[in-house]
Amino acid sequence: MIRIENVSLTRGGARILHDVSLTLPKGGLTALIGPNGAGKSSLLSLIARLQPLQTGRISVEGLPVDATPGRVLARTLAVLRQDPGVASRLRVRELVGFGRFPHSRGRLTPEDDAVVAATLDQFDLTPLKERFVETLSGGQRQRALIAMTVAQATDYLLLDEPLNNLDMRYARDLMRRLRARADAGRTIVAVLHDVNQAAAYADRIVALRDGRLVAMGAPAEIMTPETLDAVFGYRMRVVEVDGRPMALHHL
């Protein structure tokens, strides 16, 4: 369970988050949606203790994120920031291997090697495993970074815009994989820009706007013209395709 209580955040005099309280149950896929600047990434990085908590409390699986040793938390929770700027001469298998760092502190055990090999395979990275990360395309790099985060094998997975740079096929692949992990009992929180991806794969959608929680619920509850208007600030048609709501947000 992720418990967020009365969290506010101010940066450079600007209010980024406004008294957000929210409880996400253990297990399942939660999509965080909202317009640019809504505070989605900030909320995610606060949950992942990547920036200090100013007010309020956040705990993951009962562990307060601001008071739990980093090593302990790293075995419970993995996070991928948007654009972490890793363009180095690390080989893909080395990068994914660093996902095992919380478990082995660097020296990979045979068990770690097996996890890394399986993860490389899952993300179609095996043919690229000896390549330097700096020689990869944007989408390949994104897959390698997601693979590193997944290799951490934590119960909680936080992803900030994981579909960035991915083509349609890999975007669909990833969403299906996340769905399968959620069905297996893991807890996944992903910032998504495409509401239709959120509607198709998430168990619940959390909508933020201007640093405030505007709506939260099952996809069918959020995917209405009124709620989407309240979140994104314009009217869009919502149709039903094969029993699933779909927003024609581009028209």
């Binding site: 980093g70 920031r81 972490p84 890793v86 180095s88 951490q152």
Partner: peptide, 15 residues
């Protein structure tokens, strides 16, 4: 080497 991934990735990995 984990440091070379940047601060956020390092913290995320528990370093």
């Amino acid at each position: 080497t984990v440091l070379s991934l940047g601060r956020d990735a390092s913290v995320g990995l528990g370093l």
